[in-house]
Amino acid sequence: MTIDTIKMRRLSESLAEGEVRGRSLWADARKRFMKNKAAVAGVIMLVLVTAYAFLGDYVAAYTYDFKDFAIMGHAAETGAPSWSNGHYFGVDNDGRDMFAVTAQGTRISLMVGIVGTVIAVIVGTIYGAVSGYAGGRTDGIMMRIVDILLSIPFMFVIILLLVMFGRSISMLFAGIGLLSWLNMARIVRGQTLSLKNKEYIEAARATGVPAWKIILRHVVPNLLGIVAVYATLLVPDMILTESFISFLGLGVQAPMTSLGALISDGAKTMQYGTIWALLVPLFFFVVTMFAFYFIGDGLRDALDPKDR
């Protein structure tokens, strides 16, 4: 877990203080966020990387599943990045055009990161909110389940899942999502507990609004801040997890690839003179990670009014 718990805690304390006063908190936050240079740089980097990932195919002179047989096998001598032959980022040992293949790999990595996070957010928020709002016995049991699941070595379960159902993107999403909602649920539950006794919620309860409506209307919106921050910081975690799975050879199916798979291939062959096959995907990987960290940190600072 790479997420900084201390700042999260402080953020949740200040966010729990009052009901979100509609627009103003978010408006203030945006102002503060825009002042944060690192965060803005993160947004710009992320926009550029995303643009490359989704539009790179239109610029690339080759498709990602194309093998250049003329260069394959001589990549060290003739595969270096070049404008003249259209291989802007060079060709790797498999004869793949690094520009096209990295764009495609970045796309997969971003998708894995974001879909995994969305799963974590949805499951974790609902679970945590229900548990925290219900309280008492239900809360105890639900949290005990989370504790039990947290002590299962999840990397093992992901490997088992991929081995059992065969590799596929959906299985990867499911596996990674499975791994990540637990901490989300814990944070959300804590937040819900402190929200629960606020006057506006008690008022709603007193007027007979059903529990699910209170959760959806009053609890969840007030959780948004902390969930948003946590989610942003979760994305790089997901991408890292996926890269490790790819390294084990259990990642997405060829001819598709991911940044993790490309880096793993590149690292294995770096001693043969095709260093660009490592550096290109590694560059996009590092930039993506930095971007998410910066945005996450910026978002957290921006949403925390006390942090002045």
Binding site: T2, I263, A267, K268, L282, F285, V286
Partner: peptide, 12 residues
């Protein structure tokens, strides 16, 4: 250091 995967560090 956090984003550099260990499978890159090890062969280096």
């Amino acid at each position: 250091a956090q984003v550099l995967p260990s499978f890159v560090i090890a062969p280096i």
